[in-house]
Design a protein around this nucleic acid. Structure first.
Lengths: 164, 164
DNA sequence: TATTGTTATACTCTATAACTATA
DNA sequence: TATAGTTATAGAGTATAACAATA
């Protein structure tokens, strides 16, 4: 089939042939860090969702459990700030972790405005299983990129987040 | 000030000292690709928002204009699929670009179910300015990472998005 | 006055079901 | 019967203002 001329928005262009359906070119976007970041993050988070479906943990919930585990007794506002989560949003996140018996808030004796956070025994146990799943994802990434480039990637991403 | 012991969730832990506020450790997350991706994407998109505030373009709007510009006359569903945007969401995105006179939908003569997309003259002009701004962001990234590592980063991200 | 946690709310992104017109 | 575009809607994720308790 011959290409047909088509007038769009006042300019003549070539109408793509039938069967070109899969060939839309992202040439302007293919070398842009921001766009590559978005697509990679979508893909990795979808993979995370599949792996963590059985534990019913979102990325935000997992990173919260892990950070409380690493820093027990810290104030709620310190944990949320370290994770870059707004305080009001972190409240509902903690509500859910507490409702599920994975983490606890304790009114601090030091400063009775603040909550000290900690994992419950059940939270510690779930976190252990979650870390194993996370390790599997990291291994999958390493199988794709290789160990050296995985390290380089993480370092570049951290530097970018810090300095841009 | 001496550390005080504190009982949380049934376990004795050391209460962090005053002044440790900035020292919450993300040790469990610091080597995880998914977490590094999220933080980097947030930072890069915030930077994008500042740079593109004057043009009033979101990342999705910019990538749509650029892709239509690269592939004029393509079907709406082909463009949305290439960008990984759901068709229903792409409809409202196009509604807005059309309302602002940047892009146009034309009922295809070939298959009257489909819309052929194209930029307007105004859209071409805005895209040119947007590409310049995008180039500035890419230069900023390159200033942080270096040209070689920027290339490596994009390649790794694309490979990850494709293969995970 | 300032800070911690909270509530309420809104706005953006993303996802799904169902309709219409065309094929 | 299937596809392209559309509508409506629901669910995350994220952001801001304002309040109560405490410092």
């Amino acid at each position: 089939m011959a290409r047909r001329s088509l007038k769009l928005a006042g300019r003549e262009i070539e109408e793509p042939e039938d069967g070109d359906a899969a060939a839309v070119e992202l040439i302007s976007l293919s070398d842009i860090v921001g766009y590559a970041l978005r697509r990679a993050q979508m893909a990795v988070f979808e993979d995370f969702g599949r792996r963590f479906a059985a534990l019913n943990l979102s990325p935000a919930q997992y990173s919260t459990l892990a950070t409380i585990g690493d820093n027990p007794g810290r104030k709620q506002s310190e944990i949320s700030a370290a994770l870059g989560i707004q305080r009001p949003n972190f409240v509902v996140l903690m509500d859910e972790l507490e409702r599920r018996g994975l983490a606890e808030r304790t009114r601090s004796g030091d400063d009775r405005r603040s909550n000290a956070l900690a994992l419950t025994a059940s939270g510690v146990e779930l976190l252990k299983r979650a870390r194993a799943l996370q390790g599997e994802q990291e291994a999958a990434v390493e199988a794709i990129l290789g160990g050296e480039e995985r390290k380089t990637l993480v370092a570049a991403l951290r530097k970018l987040a810090r300095e841009i």
